[in-house]
Simulated scan of single mutants.
Amino acid sequence: MTVTDETRQALERQRTVEITTTGRRSGQPRRIETWRYRACGRYWLTGSPGSRDWYANVLAHSEFTLHLAEVDLQVRGRPVTDPDERALVFDKIVPALDWAGSLESWIAGSPLVEIELG
Rank of each mutant, 00 (worst) to 15 (best):
R52H: 14
R30V: 10
H67I: 04
D84W: 05
S62W: 10
H67P: 05
K92W: 11
T21M: 06
P95A: 01
T22W: 01
C40T: 15
E70I: 13
W44Q: 07
L73V: 04
E33W: 06
P79C: 04
W106T: 04
E33H: 08
C40L: 14
G27H: 10
W35C: 00
E33F: 05
H67L: 04
L45M: 04
T81M: 13
R24L: 11
R31C: 09
V58L: 14
S26Q: 06
R24G: 08
R38W: 11
S48V: 13
T21K: 03
T34G: 00
V17W: 00
R86Q: 02
F90E: 02
L68I: 07
S51A: 15
T81W: 13
W44I: 08
A100G: 03
L103W: 03
T22H: 02
P95F: 02
Y43D: 07
E70L: 13
G101D: 02
R76K: 15
A60V: 07
R78W: 08
V71I: 11
G27C: 06
A39H: 05
R76N: 10
V80K: 00
N57L: 11
I107Y: 01
S102Q: 07
H67C: 02
L73C: 03
W106N: 04
D84Q: 15
I107K: 03
G77D: 05
G27K: 06
V71R: 13
S62I: 08
Q28L: 14
G77Y: 11
V94R: 03
G50I: 05
D98Q: 14
T22R: 12
T65A: 11
R25S: 12
D72F: 09
I107W: 01
V17L: 04
V58D: 03
W99F: 02
G41H: 08
I93C: 01
H61P: 11
L97N: 09
R36V: 10
F64K: 09
P29W: 01
Q74M: 12
S48M: 12
R38T: 15
G101I: 06
R36G: 10
A87Y: 10
G47R: 08
I32C: 06
Q74N: 12
A39K: 05
I32S: 04
L88F: 07
R36M: 14
A56R: 15
V58P: 09
I19Y: 01
Q28A: 11
I107D: 00
N57C: 12
A56Q: 15
A56F: 11
T21P: 07
T46P: 10
V94C: 02
D91G: 15
A60W: 08
G23W: 05
E18V: 09
G23K: 06
A100F: 10
L97T: 07
L45S: 00
W99S: 03
R25M: 10
G101L: 00
Q28K: 14
S26H: 02
L45D: 01
L103F: 07
L45F: 03
Y43C: 06
